[in-house]
Design a protein around this nucleic acid. Structure first.
Length: 524
DNA sequence: GTCCCTTTGAAGGTC
DNA sequence: GACCTTCAAAGGGAC
C-alpha cells in the first residue's frame, strides 16, 4: 500500500485526528488472502484506512492503489452504486470521497445525499437480511443471496417517514442543484458563531467566505455557504436539515430558539433574552458548539430513516439497537467510510473552533448529568466490572471486553475461547424479516426488562432486559459467547499473545451476531 | 416540559 | 494505562 502521507500530513494539523479511528468490526476473513492479512498488525490496518484518505487528500484520487475503480466524480458524496451482480459490495466501486467540486480539498464532504439513495441502492441492502441475516462483507466475496423482497422494496419506496421541509433531503447533495436548495435554506451553522465575548475566536477563518449573517442558528453545524463558497459538499452532521420536531423539542434546540430570538447571527453569544433562568443565561453566554459526530453517529443519522421505514419500530432506543448491530455488521470498508467522514468532521470542527473542547459541553444538560451522577454505581456501567468479576469469580486482574463495555479479557471471551477450541458451530441467523422478528423481541424486552439478568455482562447497560433480548437475537441464550471472528492466534491485532486474551480489545470483540457463513470457528 | 432510553465513538478526567 | 463519564442524534414514552 502506498503511503503517501508522512510528515506532510502535519501540515493540515489535523490528520492525526484520525489516529483513533478504527474499524472495530472484524469479519470472518475466511479466504486465503484475508487469512494472510489477519497476521497483519491492527495498527497497520488502521493506518491503512488513514493512508487511504490521506493519500486521497493529497493526490486527489481516492484510495490510490487500493481501489482500482476510480471515482465517477459524482457530486453525490458517498454515493453507492449497487453492484450489478451482488448489489452489495458497491462500496468498493465508488470513490468514497470524491470532492463535489472536483477538487482535492480535504474539507468534509461527508454524508451528502445518502438519504436520497434510490431503493435497492447501497446500504439499503443491509436490510433484507437485516441484522440477523446480514450478508457477508463485500470483501469476502461470497455472493450474497440477498435480494430486496417486495416488502422491503415497498418499504423503501414509501414516502419518507420524516419528510423534510420543502421536500428536500436532510442532507444536501451539494450538487449544483442541491447546493441551490441548500442555499435556499441558507442554513446557519449549527455551531453558532462565537464572539470575542464567548471566549472563542471567530470560528470561521477569514479565508472562508462566510458571512456572519448566514450563521444565525446553531441548528446548522456549518453553513452551506461554507460548502458552497468553497465548492464543497458538507457532511450531514455539519449541514443538518432544517429544524425537525426533535430539534425543537430537544434541549439543544432550546438553545437554538434562544439564539433565534436573541439574534440572527454573530450576536449568538448573547444570553437568551427571554430566559428568566440565570443558569440558562450563563450557559447561553457561551454558544453551545456541538461535538462533531462520530462515525457511528453519522451512520445512525443516515440509516435511521431507512430502518424506521422498514420496521414498525418507532422508538429511537430500539432503532438504535438495530443500528448498533447493523453497524457491527458493516464491512470494514463500509465502516471505514464513516470513520473517515467522522475524521473529516472533526478536522473541520477543529479548524472552525480551535479552542473548543468536548469538555466545554460538559454539563450542558446539567440536570441529566446530575441525575446520572446521582445514580448508584450499580445503575451505571462503572460498576459492571465489579459485578462481572463477582458473578464469574474473576480475580481482580480479569477484565472484560466490549460486551461488558470494558476492554480486555472477560468471561465472555473466555467462553468464546472454550467454544472455539471445540469448533463450535456458530448460531445461524434465521433469514427472515428482521424487523418483524425484532418487533417481537423488542416488545418482549420491554416487558422483560425486569426479568433481565442485570449481572450478565452483556446486560450491564441501563436496560438489561433490552440488551438481553437483543443479545438473544444475536445468539441464543444457550449458546456460548460468540467466538472472535479471528480464530485464536490469528487475530491481526494479536501482537504478542497467541491467544491474545490480554490483547483483546473492544476493537476485536464483535458484539454483533455472527453472520451466516460464519458457522464454524476453527482453532489452530 | 423534561428526561430517559439506546447505540458507538471521541475525548477529557481520574486514579 | 485502565477506567469512568459525558456528549453527540433521534424520537417515542414516561413522568
Amino acid at each position: 500500500m502506498p503511503h503517501a502521507h508522512s510528515s506532510s500530513a502535519a501540515s493540515s494539523g489535523g490528520d492525526d485526528l484520525g489516529s483513533t479511528d478504527e474499524v472495530k468490526v472484524f469479519k470472518d476473513e475466511g479466504d486465503g488472502e484475508d487469512e494472510k492479512r489477519s497476521s497483519e498488525n491492527l495498527l497497520e490496518e488502521k493506518s491503512s484506512l488513514i493512508d487511504w484518505t490521506e493519500s486521497e487528500e493529497k493526490s486527489g484520487e481516492p484510495y490510490p492503489g487500493k481501489l482500482s475503480v476510480k471515482s465517477d466524480l459524482s457530486p453525490v458524496f458517498g454515493k453507492f452504486e449497487p453492484h450489478p451482480a451482488t448489489g452489495f459490495n458497491m462500496g468498493y466501486l465508488m470513490a468514497p470521497y470524491p470532492y463535489p467540486n472536483g477538487g482535492a480539498h480535504p474539507l468534509p464532504v461527508s454524508m451528502t445525499g445518502k438519504m436520497g439513495l434510490p431503493a435497492g441502492g447501497g446500504l439499503s441492502l443491509f436490510c433484507p437480511g437485516g441484522e440477523l441475516g446480514q450478508p457477508p462483507p463485500a470483501h469476502m466475496g461470497i455472493p450474497p443471496p440477498y435480494q430486496l423482497d417486495s416488502k422491503l422494496a415497498a418499504g423503501l419506496a414509501r414516502t419518507p417517514m420524516y419528510p423534510f421541509p420543502g421536500g428536500t433531503y436532510p442532507y444536501p447533495m451539494l450538487s449544483p442543484e442541491m447546493s441551490q436548495v441548500a442555499a435556499s435554506w441558507h442554513t446557519p451553522t449549527m455551531y453558532p458563531i462565537s464572539s470575542a465575548a464567548s471566549g472563542f475566536r471567530s470560528p470561521y477563518p477569514t479565508s472562508l467566505p462566510i458571512s456572519s449573517s448566514s450563521l444565525s442558528s446553531e441548528l446548522y453545524r456549518f453553513s452551506p455557504t461554507l460548502g458552497g463558497g468553497l465548492g464543497l459538499g458538507l457532511g450531514p452532521a455539519l449541514v443538518p436539515p432544517p429544524p425537525s420536531k426533535s430539534d425543537l423539542d430537544s434541549h439543544h434546540s432550546r438553545y437554538a430558539r434562544s439564539l433565534e430570538k436573541g439574534s440572527s447571527s454573530s450576536s449568538s453569544d448573547k444570553p437568551s433574552d427571554s430566559s428568566a433562568n440565570s443558569n440558562n443565561k450563563e450557559q447561553n453566554k457561551k454558544p453551545h458548539i456541538k461535538k462533531p459526530l462520530n462515525a457511528f453517529m453519522l451512520y445512525m443519522k443516515e440509516m435511521r430513516a431507512k430502518v424506521v421505514a422498514e420496521c414498525t419500530l418507532k422508538e429511537s432506543a430500539a432503532i438504535n439497537q438495530i443500528l448498533g448491530r447493523r453497524w457491527h455488521s458493516l464491512s470494514r470498508e463500509e465502516q471505514a467510510k464513516y470513520y473517515e467522514k467522522a475524521r473529516q468532521e472533526r478536522q473541520l470542527h477543529m479548524q472552525l473552533y480551535p479552542g473548543w473542547s468536548a469538555r466545554d459541553n460538559y454539563g450542558y444538560g446539567s440536570k441529566k448529568k446530575k441525575r446520572k451522577k446521582d445514580r448508584s454505581p450499580a445503575e451505571l456501567g462503572g460498576n459492571n466490572l465489579k459485578k462481572c468479576r463477582a458473578r464469574y469469580g474473576l480475580d481482580q486482574q480479569s477484565q472484560w471486553c466490549k460486551p461488558c463495555r470494558r476492554k480486555k479479557k472477560c468471561v465472555r471471551y473466555m467462553e468464546a475461547l472454550a467454544a472455539a477450541s471445540g469448533t463450535v458451530p456458530m448460531p445461524m441467523a434465521t433469514p427472515q424479516s428482521p424487523c418483524s422478528e425484532e418487533d417481537v423481541k423488542l416488545e418482549e424486552m420491554s416487558d422483560a426488562s425486569s426479568d433481565g439478568d442485570a449481572d450478565t455482562p452483556l446486560n450491564s447497560a441501563s436496560s438489561p432486559g433490552a440488551l438481553s433480548a437483543l443479545s438473544s437475537l444475536a445468539s441464543p441464550a444457550s449458546e456460548p459467547a460468540p467466538a472472535p471472528r479471528h480464530p485464536v492466534g490469528t487475530n491481526p491485532r494479536d501482537a504478542n499473545n497467541p491467544l491474545s486474551v490480554g490483547q483483546l480489545t473492544s476493537q476485536s470483540w464483535p458484539r454483533a451476531a455472527p453472520r451466516p457463513g460464519h458457522e464454524v470457528i476453527s482453532v489452530s
